[in-house]
Design a protein around this nucleic acid. Sequence first.
DNA 1: TCAATATATTGATATATGTCAATTTATGAA
DNA 2: TTCATAAATTGACATATATCAATATATTGA
Lengths: 232, 232
Amino acid sequence: MRDCIHYGTCTICCCESTPPLFRKLSKTEFNELHSERKEVVFKAGEVIFKQGTALTHFACFREGMAKVYYERPEGSNMLVNIVGAGRICSGIGLYTDNIHHLTVQALTDVNLCLIATKDIEAVIEKSKVMAIEMITLTNQNSIQFTHKLANLTYKSMAGRVAEVLLYLQNEIYESERFTLNLSRQDLADLAAMTKESFIRTLKELKDAGIIKVNRNQVEIVKLNSLTKISNS
Amino acid sequence: MRDCIHYGTCTICCCESTPPLFRKLSKTEFNELHSERKEVVFKAGEVIFKQGTALTHFACFREGMAKVYYERPEGSNMLVNIVGAGRICSGIGLYTDNIHHLTVQALTDVNLCLIATKDIEAVIEKSKVMAIEMITLTNQNSIQFTHKLANLTYKSMAGRVAEVLLYLQNEIYESERFTLNLSRQDLADLAAMTKESFIRTLKELKDAGIIKVNRNQVEIVKLNSLTKISNS
DNA sequence: TCAATATATTGATATATGTCAATTTATGAA
DNA sequence: TTCATAAATTGACATATATCAATATATTGA
């Protein structure tokens, strides 16, 4: 349980480790969102937001993890990122076409708060702080996409696999040892390659002693080497 | 010369065919940006914004065209899009790190107005209309990036080349016949492949009678076929 | 105009990555 | 537990795409 700037230490508000989007709001502004929130639980595997459907709510993750991906016409998925506690999810349809452009699916049981976009819009109308935070969030998204685009279109498989591992270490599990709750297919979707290719490349890294892999247990042994490879 | 909602028909204001970002501003709000604008001319080939440098201004294009690209560490470029008259350029560093994440280079002689980000921020602070327009713009960016990412990572070369041609037809030249002012290398950078591969694929489309190509003259003959290919 | 340079094109070849099939290993329900 | 199903792994092979080199064509500046 982490500090909440609006309600002290709390377990049931959507702001447990308040998402950045709401961090600078006044108590009044924040409460307008907080009081209207819907707390929902999803089981692992359930779809939280579905690409192509109406964007009516943002999700604030309190517990658990979900994968965010683009569903291609022919069925394969492009995994964009993983979201966990304290993260806000969805939004790129806001003030545009009000449609979800990505699907979000629970990887573990997930506990989140839904906040209606109409409430968020109402606060944006009133509060320049909120408006600016929203601009910040969307621009951060764009920056992330720019780098993702550049990386996926020019790096070799080894580079992309290494990058995925570093992403998991730094952004998701925050440790050089972690237990995956993503399938090999998910990891391959994250690196934009087939699962067979991902597995083979992973094995090469293992055989080179750069990582240890045993089923879903991963340990990054030679961080320097992996970082070097991630730039290739 | 097109209508300008703020000054009637005008040739020297930055709002000739006012960029969407400013279209809904009141005259007062708009004037705050307009009066502080700097009109600048760039020659073909000159760099307008350089990736990695400080983001201090937005550019509103009045005349000419420029390419927007990401410069990779090893020297190759990923071309993101082309901008022309009436388009706003740059922004994804705003309210984040205030850095240009992409380079913008003039393809033809370019005539544009520079508007300081501090002025834009000042208007955002005062006007919810402007704030919302900015959110809209950045979200449109994100949507565009999402689709670009999905397309570049799974389509075959033929699909990507077809898509580039359709992009040029629909978004840039607005005609099924056009004279390229992009090099083959630029086109290849847009399709995320080598120029040799681009040229070969272009030739295949030509040999199949789907397009006509003669140097920089391009004509799309069988739109249906090209559209079908663009999905492969 | 001509040489010098950049850009475009083509061909031969190498290589990275995907595809398909077979096998192993895990997982979950009865 | 045991079967049935799904996921992971491995190997052989096909193919898309990049690389490198040679040539052709255009462009530019003196």
